[in-house]
Write a protein that binds this DNA or RNA. Sequence first.
DNA 1: TTGTGTTTTATTGCCTCC
DNA 2: GGAGGCAATAAAACACAA
Length: 314
Amino acid sequence: MAGGTGGSNSNLSVLLQSQRGPCAASQPLESFFLSGSSPSFLGSRSMMSFEDVHQANGSTRPFFRSFDHEDNGDDDLDEYFHQPEKKRRLTVDQVQFLERSFEVENKLEPERKIQLAKDLGLQPRQVAIWFQNRRARWKTKQLEKDYDVLQSSYNSLKAGYDDLLKEKEKLKAEVNLLTDKLLLKEKEKGSSELSDKDAFSQEPPKRAIADSASEGEVSKISTAACKQEDISSAKSDIFDSDSPHYADGVHSSLLEAGDSSYVFEPDQSDLSQDEEDNFSKSLLPPYVFPKLEDDDYSDPSANFEDHAFWSWSY
DNA sequence: TTGTGTTTTATTGCCTCC
DNA sequence: GGAGGCAATAAAACACAA
């Protein structure tokens, strides 16, 4: 990259301009001329070759902003030196060179800084500033990337959460539907027993569910039965007479009662689902068999223990 | 051409490390 | 205490629509 020495008036002008770069304010101008072997001076020399390469590449940008006053004599030169310094953008080639260097290592050791400055014909401080600003841009980009990653992570988690919520609502509706059906059957059974009482007044009713249980307790039992089941299979199990669940607990008691028209008899109703729901609601006061609410799912063990569901034995 | 928004270069002040 | 890094900021350069 380093190479030609320049020597023409044009090159001298560029050289002078480069020495009066933005950082020259903190560096006595004389030092550049008194010390021809200083890194910055050599850097300017190498800069000339860099300019040649750059122009050979057909870029429209000069290495530095052109020094337009080079043919206008000493007055213009003097005027130039007294003008406030203007910023000059680096050329495309300089930036590409710096970018490649940055990719290798984004920190700048003093030796490397000097070498880069030499190769590019810049002040070491300019190189340092460029790296400083480049690190800042990299950091900003990195933050944006991190934000995007977090955002997509959040979105996928939220989608999963929403799916679970929908699933929960669906299952809750299913449970409520089944409990309604169960209640309806219980009520039907209760009314038929009342009519049977007239015929067998002295015989205690062969209720499968806890002879001495109050109506509220019956509700608890039914609810517990639903909760204890795998909810997704509850619907089919309840109406499946081949289910092993019928061999114990409530179901077996029901079978032992010898009442073939008992609660879990499938296909007893000609009512549609909505009609059944409405019917059961009209028959039963809400306190008899409360619907499951959100809290019922929040802490199943606590909830069930609260209602002594697990201590029931038949 | 001009107004405006963005990018790039450079400065300043503070902080940390040796 | 000096060197170097970083955040905040200024200001020039640039891009672009109206």
